[in-house]
Design a binder for these strands. Sequence first.
DNA 1: CCCGTCGTTATTTTT
DNA 2: TAACGACGGG
Length: 711
Amino acid sequence: MQDSELLEGLNDEQAAAVTHEGSGLLILAGAGSGKTRVLTTKLAWLIKERGLDPYSILAVTFTKKAAGEMKERAIALESRAAYANIRTFHSFGAYCLRRYWQEAGVDKNFTVYDDDDSASLLAKAIPGIKKSEAAILAKRIALAKDYGLTPDDDLSVLDGGDGVFAVQYRSYQKRLEQTGNVDFGDLILLPYITLKNNALLRSDIHRRYRVIMVDEYQDSNIAQFLLLKELSGVEEGAPTYVCVVGDDDQSIYKFRGAEVQNILNFRDNFPGSDLIRLETNYRSTDMILSCAASLVSNNSGRLGKNLCSARGKGKKPTLVFLPNQDDETEFCADMIENSLNKGGAYSDWAILYRTNAQSLGFESCFLHRKIPYTLVGSLKFYEREEIKDLLSWLAFVANPRDEIAFRRIVNKPARGIGPGSQDKIVDAAFGKPLTETLDSVKLSKKAGEALKDFFSIYKTFTDFLDENKDSELKLSEFIRLIVEKSGLKEHYESQDEISGSSKSDNMEELASSALFYSCSKEGLLDFLDHIELDRSLENPEGEEKKDAVTLITLHNTKGLEYKKVIITGMESGIFPRQDKTGADLEEERRLFYVGITRARDELYFTSCASRRLYGRTSFMLPSPFLSELGKNNFRVLGQEPAAFVSYDNDPIAKKYCKGACLYHDEWGQGYIVEAFYSEENNYVIGVKFDGSSGIKRFLPKFQSKDLLIVK
DNA sequence: CCCGTCGTTATTTTT
DNA sequence: TAACGACGGG
C-alpha cells in the first residue's frame, strides 16, 4: 500500500495525511504547502487503494472554483472520483434541499435569493423601512443564519437585547416562506435544521457518506459546523471519517460569520482526531516566508506552525516609502515597465490593496501609461442590471410565487404597473402564485390590462417549456425567446445605442451559457442553481486571458499566487483600518499574512506619507504591521518617517488605545475611534462622543487631565 | 418616465 | 473627492 504510485513525489507529511485513517483528521496546511494536492490524492487513494465507493465520499469547498479544481485533479488521478460528491458547501445545501424539499418545507421549484434580493424582500416585509436600513438589516439576518440562529433562538448577540431584531427577522422569514424561495444562509441552515429534527433522514445520510472532507475549514461558520456535525453523526457514534483542511493563520472572513474556533477546537468536537501539519512551502522563497512568520507571530491563540521554503533564500522583500498616492501608482507602473524590459510579463505582477476604492488611482495611471490590467471582483456579471432582469424572468417561470423576481420584471419595460399596483397584486396573492391573481385584484383599467398582457407573455414562456421538454432543444433557445418577447431586448438595445453599453450582448452571453442545459423545468432549475451558486470572479465566457497586471483586494487573493506582488497602502488607518482592535486587529494581520504569502519570487510594500481621503489630504503614518515583519527581513527604499507607529512602547498610547471609553468634562462620554502619531510625533486620538456626530481630536500628552479613561 | 440636483457616505464579501 | 441614492420638476 505504501508503494502506491499515488504517493510518489509527496513529502512524508503529505503522504501521512493521504494515508491517514481512523477517527478524524485535521490537516493544518500552511500557505503554499500543497494542500489541494493532498486532498485530491487522498480522494483518489481512498477509491483506488482502499476500495471505497466514490458515491460515499463528500468533499466540500468554499468556492466553485476550488470545487472544480478539486474534482478535475482528483479525476486525473482516479477516474472514478467523478462519482464522488465534490461541491461547495452551499451547492451541497441546495442539493439537499432539492432532494428533501418536503422535509425542509421549501417549494419544490425554489430559487436562491442573493443579498440584494433579500434586502428588497425585507423592504417589503417591514413597511416603512428605508432601503439603506433594509440592506443593513438583511446583512444582520444573513449573519444570524451564519451563526446558525433562527428567529426562535436567543438573538441577543445581534439584538442589543430589546427583541426588535427577532421580530424583524421573523417577518422577513415569513415573507420569504411565502415566496417558497430560500436565501444563501438557508442553504446551510435549513439542511441542518431538517437533519437535526429527522432521525430517519440522518441515518440515511450516515449510511451514505463514509468520508467527509472540508477544505478551507478556517473560514467555515457556525451553521456549517453544525451541519457538518449532523452530516457526520459524530455525536451519535456514526462511523463517518471526517477530514478537514485549513490554516488558522489565513482566517479572514470573521466579519461574515466565519468562526476560527471551528478549526482551533476541531479536535475537541471530533474526539480522537489526529493533527498533521504541512509545513513545507513550495511557493515562496525563504525571505518572503520570514516576513510572514515574523508578522503572524504577533497573533495569539494560534495552533502554530513553521513554514519552511523548498525554494531557497531568494530576494529580500522591499519596503518603499513614497510621498503620496500618485507617486505610489507611478512607482508601481515604473517597476512593472522596468521588469518588462528585462523580459518579464505583465501577468507576473499583482497589485494588492485593502479596499476596492484604492484601485481607482492604479486604473487611471495604467490606462494613461497603456499598461494592461485586469480588475478582479468589480462589477460582477450576474449583478448587472440586465442580467438580473433576465434571471428574474427565469426565476419567475420556475417559481411564480417569487415576489422579488415579479416586481423586477413586471414593469420593465414600463407597462404602467407601478409599485402601488405591484403591492396590491402581491397582497392579493398572499403566498399563492402571483399568476393567479388576475381575478382577485382590483387595479386601474390600464394596470389591469397591462397585467393581463404580462401574464399572457408569461404563459407563452411556460407553454414553450412544456411543449419542448422532450425535444432536443436547449435552454439557450428558451432564454433567447424570453429576451425577445419580454421586451427586454428592445428596452436595452435602445439604451445600448444611446450610452454605448453592451447590455443586449450580455443577455445573449447568458443565453449561450445555457447551451448544455435541457429546455425543461428541470434544466431551468439546474441552470439557476448553477449560476446562483457560482458568482465566481471571472466573467463566464471570459475574454481570452490577456497578459495583464492583476489589480485585486487582499481578500480576493486567497488561494492565488503571483511571481511578483506589491502590497500597497501600507499605512496606519488604511491597513489595518483604524477601528480595528483586539481580535479584529488580528484578523487584519492575518489578511496581511495572506497577502505576503501570495508572492513567489518578489514582494514589495508601499507606504505613503500623505493620501487623499474623503476629499481631504491626510498625513499618513506607516502601518504598525511593517514593524512586525522583522528588521532584517526586508530592505527600505525612500525616505523613512521619523518613527514607526508603535503602540507598544508608548505608555500614553497604551493608556489611550483605540476602543477605550473616556469621559470629558465638556463633551461627556465617548470612545476612541482613531489613534495615530502626528507629524511632530505626538500621539493623537480621535474621539466620538455620545450624542454628537463628528470626531474630536485630542493630544493626550497635554490634555490627560481632561480625558478620563472610564474603562 | 427621465433627468438634474442635493445630500449622504465612504471595509473586506468565497456563497 | 466621488459616487450613489432620494426626490422633485418637466
